[in-house]
């Protein structure tokens, strides 16, 4: 049984000028201790799908329209009573956010913020909680934690703050850590340290991690499996090897080609032709079709069936690949 089983998750924003279909029928599973990457262009619904799981999207305008997200085979997160969900947040599922500069409360000491999950979820006393907080700060590589813990967030650098966020998220030893672009706001050397840190802590604690990023390099470095998202849906899902070396969706390929790589210096950067999708439009068929090099009439027809099994757990949403009309490996030879 998977640790988390998400089925047909659909989150829309009801705006004045139309419905933004930010997440539209997303299904995936997460096993204990595994690392799942979610990758996709900006606006493809990566963050919203994660926030929906913990009811962290602003409502209104947001609304979870359909779907289930079953944790440990027992609770459906999308239908759990508020109190039940609150006890899961920060205890069984913890989050680290993109911008460490704004994600810590500037008015409260690090210590106050760090011990909070322990006071709330484990009923510890202040003294014991503080001891644990200092311990977990040391575990994420903050020296002199006894003294540092009394400071305010603005007295820390960005990298240090993200370490604090990670320590705070892991302090209750959650089963799932959702990291929404945890390194995007940091400079490259710090990025590597933070990734390494999450990996190390994950090994020690057996935490499953959902990594949200638009950086394929990060995915290749740390993930077991990957979901590739486009326009609020999953286009392809598979292991890192399957996604990188055996890709079964033209969008995944286009995404890979648009990474600036070192050896192609001088060559102009590949960009996916066409405009990003308009999420307010109701669509039928493949959302990537208008920008796809392999598009055919039936891609947007009634036969389009969305994400489906390709080979074993390797799934793709490309109808032509599924029907065996298109072999991307052949095409690229």
């Amino acid at each position: 049984m998977p640790l988390l089983e998400v089925n047909d998750l659909t989150t829309w924003f009801h705006m004045r000028d139309g419905i933004v279909r930010a997440v539209d029928g997303v299904s995936f599973t997460l096993d204990r201790g595994e690392t799942l990457g979610i990758v996709g262009e900006s606006g493809s619904g990566k963050s919203v799908s994660c926030y929906s799981l913990l009811d962290l999207i602003p409502k209104p305008p947001g609304r979870i329209e359909r779907g289930t997200a079953v944790l440990g085979g027992e609770v459906d997160l999308l239908r759990a009573p508020r109190e039940v969900l609150r006890r899961i947040r920060g205890k069984r599922i913890a989050m680290v956010f993109q911008d460490p500069m704004t994600s810590l409360n500037p008015y409260l000491r690090i210590s106050t913020q760090m011990i909070e999950p322990l006071l709330i979820h484990e009923g510890l006393g202040n003294r014991e909680a503080l001891r644990r907080a200092i311990e977990s700060l040391e575990e994420v590589g903050i020296h002199d934690a006894v003294r540092q813990i009394d400071l305010y967030p603005h007295q820390f650098s960005g990298g240090m703050r993200q370490r604090v966020m990670i320590a705070m998220a892991l302090i209750t030893h959650p089963e799932i850590l959702i990291a929404d672009e945890p390194t995007t706001a940091l400079d490259v050397t710090v990025q590597a340290q933070i990734l390494e840190l999450i990996k190390a802590r994950q090994r020690e604690l057996g935490t499953a991690v959902i990594y949200v990023t638009h950086d394929l390099g990060v995915i290749a470095g740390v993930c077991d499996r990957v979901n590739v998202m486009y326009a609020g849906t999953i286009m392809e899902s598979g292991t890192v090897d399957e996604i990188f070396y055996n890709s079964a969706h033209p969008y995944t390929q286009a995404l890979q080609q648009s990474i600036p790589s070192l050896h192609d210096k001088g060559k102009s950067l590949y960009t996916i032709p066409g405009a990003p999708p308009d999420l307010t439009e109701e669509r039928s068929g493949c959302p990537f079709a208008p920008r796809c090099a392999y598009e055919e009439a039936h891609c947007t027809g009634p036969n389009y069936r969305g994400l489906d099994a390709f080979r074993g757990r390797h799934k793709t949403a490309c109808l032509r690949v599924l029907e065996g009309e298109l072999n991307l490996k052949e095409e690229n030879r």
Binding site: I88, R89, F97, N105, P106, L108, E116, I120, H121
Partner: peptide, 25 residues
Amino acid sequence: QDYIRTARAKGVPEFMIVYKHALKG
């Protein structure tokens, strides 16, 4: 603000979010 979302993600009860995390600012 983002840090209120962080507090929610930690499972802080709603009245504590208002009283402890938001009131000062």
